[in-house]
Design a protein around this nucleic acid. Structure first.
Lengths: 321, 321
DNA sequence: AAAATCAATGTAAACGTTTACATTTTATAA
DNA sequence: TTATAAAATGTAAACGTTTACATTGATTTT
């Protein structure tokens, strides 16, 4: 390449990066050589020298979740505006894959990581943050080393359950998942404290567990119905679970919202493509993504960072009155 | 690192890559130094030297499509088994982003590309294939240089429409999109030839255009109904369009499948989460992904490649009799 | 006309690997 | 013993950049 233009590699570099001076003539010579050869600077040479790549990784468990893909899109947009590129790595819940993707990052492939969810322990998260800039988005572990951007899950659940209560419901099923995510824990807290504030006793039998999915909810909720436990409404921690439960109710001739009211979570497609449309808790995907990137850039640039809690919103649809 | 173990960099490299001989003692020394320092070989040094990264890129327009994410998962699984890692780049339909992701690839970041869909022209696709191994999966352009793995869209549509016809339907709406994708074109051909083979005249008025989405279909199909054109069934090129149309029919008191039968495409979530469940054309995601990767590996290893056409399957549900 | 300044460009080191080749050490054979 | 072979390890070049520094040549100042 340098030979083609008849100049030194240094000059080529200067022209391409518009750094330092050079004459119009050489600039032209280089530029046309670039054109002629279709020359593209090698990423590795550059990265090796600069020790930065301007690429950030977004790590999550599954691409299937449309809420996540929406957050990713926001991250990507703002990152692009700041000269960064985004690459998405889905672990599919496999620890090994998570490890090797993180390895890429710690080996220099990425300038930072935004973690939507991971199986990292508190200690691992903390030590990873010492190796490379990391911010958590949406789901998080509260370590002192890794900033997070999320919503107040407790308050969100509180609001959702309060809506049901204000509609006169008192036997509210909490359809949750058996895991230790902050979101799950927070939503459980919110559920309980809404009951509490309204003088409704907490009933363990109304808490059921699924895995966020639709199909699992169809069989799971069916089993619940078979137990004959009395209830008048459902608050589910995912729209898909809400939809699955609703479909079972439909099959059994139980009307929504007349007999049972339902509130889901995430405002995903299924909440408005199902019949009736499902009332749900919407998280601000756009702001989540944007703030996460900003925090990451703060770390990269050595600026001060902070945890960010964004506000949610209840989207009322036809599954509640 | 080399100093820590008290050996040369060459020895370190040999130990780590288990290449060439060395004594048990030095091996131990290196290994414990690795352990102590938490040493990770730098990806760029390695890539620069080897000119390979063992990473492949999957390029697509949007992560929102669950069919695509399912194909990606298959690619990823088989790639992992062959020592390759996968990274997903979503263009969101933005030409610039497509370009810079492709740049990463041509600059050495990736050993190959699997394109699920792109806005590349035939010429661009062809010339890209001369720079880096590329295979097209699912959606494709027929260039002589870039192998593809897909289904026979014409036959799939033919089968779907034949099902409707064999159920006695003759006024079949073709709900399609206004683009030049092979899938769209093929499905149109299949639709027409099924009509033809059954002596049903093609009626231009029964062809309507949407953008694959649910919301678009709700308004679009509503407009169609307002025109008062007589029809007794719908074949849509996406499940979401089928679901959107079905929801409009529901609102207007038109029964599915009694009054109108519907067939969708892709066997995505919405086809079984909507009520009634939608009959659809299932593509073999697993095989699509697997074959795409195998073809890519063929190119990388300089072996012979071929285009692959996999078979589809009609999944009968409640939107047809 | 000599000295000083400045613009344009080249030189070479550095980034962290891999690997052909050279060298050293150790074991074996004569 | 010494010569030879084999094993272990080191040396140095190469990959493609960036950049501090050096060099060249032209222009300006004295």
């Amino acid at each position: 390449m340098a030979k083609e233009a008849g100049v030194s590699v240094a000059t080529v570099s200067r022209v391409i990066n518009k750094k330092g001076v050079c004459s119009k003539d050489t600039e032209q010579a280089v530029l046309s050589a670039v054109e002629k050869l279709g020359y593209k600077p090698n990423l590795f040479g550059k990265a090796l020298r600069r020790s930065e790549t301007k690429i950030i990784m977004v790590l999550l468990s599954s691409l299937a979740n449309t809420f996540c893909s929406s957050v990713i899109r926001s991250i990507d947009r703002i990152a692009g505006m700041h000269g960064y590129y985004t690459m998405v790595c889905a672990t599919e819940g496999i620890k090994e894959k998570e490890e090797y993707y993180i390895n890429f990052a710690t080996n220099g492939l990425f300038d930072g990581i935004i973690i939507l969810n991971s199986s990292l322990s508190k200690a691992e998260m903390s030590s990873l943050s010492k190796t490379i800039p990391v911010v958590q988005c949406n789901e998080y572990i509260d370590t002192k080393d890794t900033p997070y951007v999320s919503i107040d899950n407790t308050k969100a659940a509180y609001d959702a359950v309060s809506l049901l209560i204000s509609n006169g419901r008192r036997r509210i099923v909490f359809y949750t998942a058996d895991n230790n995510l902050v979101s799950t824990k927070g939503r459980f807290d919110g559920y309980k404290s809404a009951l509490d504030d309204n003088g409704i006793p907490f009933d363990e039998k109304l808490v059921i567990y699924g895995n966020y999915g639709y199909r699992n909810a169809v069989t799971g909720f069916s089993d619940f119905l078979d137990q004959g436990i009395e209830f008048d409404s459902i608050f589910a921690i995912s729209d898909r679970m809400a939809a699955g439960a609703m479909s079972v109710l439909g099959e059994r001739g139980i009307r929504v919202p007349e007999d049972v009211e339902i509130v889901g979570f995430d405002n995903t497609d299924i909440s408005y493509t199902s019949t009736p449309k499902i009332t749900t808790v919407a998280q601000p995907h756009h702001d989540l993504g944007e703030n996460a990137f900003c925090q990451l850039e703060n770390i990269i640039s050595g600026r001060h960072t902070a945890n960010v809690i964004l506000s949610h919103r209840i989207v009322r649809r036809d599954s509640t009155k």
